[in-house]
Amino acid sequence: MPQLEIATYPSQIFWLVVSFVTLYLIMSRIIIPRISSVIKNREDEIKNNIYASEKIYKETKIINDELDKVREDTETEAREIINSLKETTNKKISQNYNVLKEKLEKKLQKNEQEILKNKKKVLKEINAISLNLSDEILKKISIKNKKKNKIKLIINKNLKEIKNDINQ
């Protein structure tokens, strides 16, 4: 059995030690650092990517929040603008309304006064005109003076009544 030939042992042990130590040195110095660096790089890359994605996610959140804030601000601003415009428009409307009202009232007063004036004027003239008219009528139908006075009294009375009616 060749395994039991003790004469071959020194050579086998020697070359085993040489081979094993050589392989150990190659592995520990060259190969293992290379493989572990590749694997570590990959893990780092994955970690970095995860970190970067988290960062981007956070940034997006911040931007979203900002956007929401800006939107809210704009909405409130727009509301304010609308409200202030409403107010100013209302003010203007009421102002104009008041001005117009005043003008109208003034005009109305003026017109009323004029009407009153005209009315007085008419009432003043109505006596003379109606008397003249009755005179003329009486002349034409030639009624006696006595009766004339009676008619005048009736006309005056009627006139008074008319005047009262108008004044009322």
Binding site: S11, Q12, W15, L23, I31, R34
Partner: peptide, 23 residues
């Protein structure tokens, strides 16, 4: 006697092959 034998040869081949493969 530490002669280089067929056993030594295959030990050398092993380390060369595994090193080459991994490298």
């Amino acid at each position: 006697n530490i002669s280089y034998t067929n056993s030594s040869l295959f030990m050398s081949l092993s380390i060369i092959l595994v090193s080459l493969l991994l490298l």
